[in-house]
């Protein structure tokens, strides 16, 4: 089904780009430590920028982690089920738990981001940097997670979920 491939590709690309951000905020922290301890000059923007980059980083990776089945789960019971029962049990999990959460996450983070955008919200510390890009990223992350859930749900329904194989013991 093309939609599965499109969604998986989108989150794969996002994941491969966003994962690199960890190196960037590690670098900024080191730069700040160096400037402060060696040259006696704290970097005014480092605190807020680092915090925002970390926020962008992990929240945007939620869909990517789901695409790789990296989210921890307890499959002691489901691993003992027959494959069709297991597939439908897991699919039901998406309907009962995942979609209500992902929907509320998407809907509420949209409102949240729009409020911030309309107010032109900035941080109020040593420097003023805009807050709304991070809040918008949260909405984008919610959408990425929601569509990846749709992809995983379809894989279960269509019996294409690669993680459900008789031989593989699923561990984190």
């Amino acid at each position: 089904m093309p939609i599965i491939r499109v969604i998986d590709t989108v989150n794969e690309i996002v994941g491969r780009i966003v994962s690199v951000v960890a190196i960037i905020f590690a670098g900024i922290i080191i730069y700040d430590v160096f400037m402060r301890s060696a040259l006696g000059q704290p970097t005014r923007w480092a605190f807020d920028v680092t915090k925002q980059l970390y926020g962008f980083y992990f929240i945007l990776l939620g869909g990517y982690a789901l695409r790789h089945q990296a989210h921890v789960r307890v499959d002691l019971l489901t691993a003992r089920m027959t494959l069709p029962v297991r597939r439908w049990t897991e699919a039901a999990g998406y309907l009962i738990f995942f979609f209500p959460f992902a929907w509320i996450f998407t809907r509420e983070s949209w409102k949240f981001a729009m409020t911030s955008w309309n107010q032109g919200e900035v941080t109020y510390g040593a420097v003023s940097i805009p807050v709304y890009p991070l809040k918008m990223a949260m909405f984008v992350a919610a959408v990425l997670l929601l569509i990846q859930g749709i992809s995983e749900f379809l894989k279960l329904i269509l019996d294409r979920a690669p993680h459900i194989e008789p031989e593989i013991t699923h561990v984190r």
Partner: peptide
């Protein structure tokens, strides 16, 4: 002069810098 001080607030930071210190956010 030259002190690195934890201080919150934008206005407060500006004032500290006028007085010769540096604001650290924490």
């Amino acid at each position: 002069q030259g002190l690195q001080l934890r201080l919150s607030g934008y206005e407060q930071g500006k004032l500290l810098e006028k007085l010769g210190g540096s604001q650290v956010s924490m």
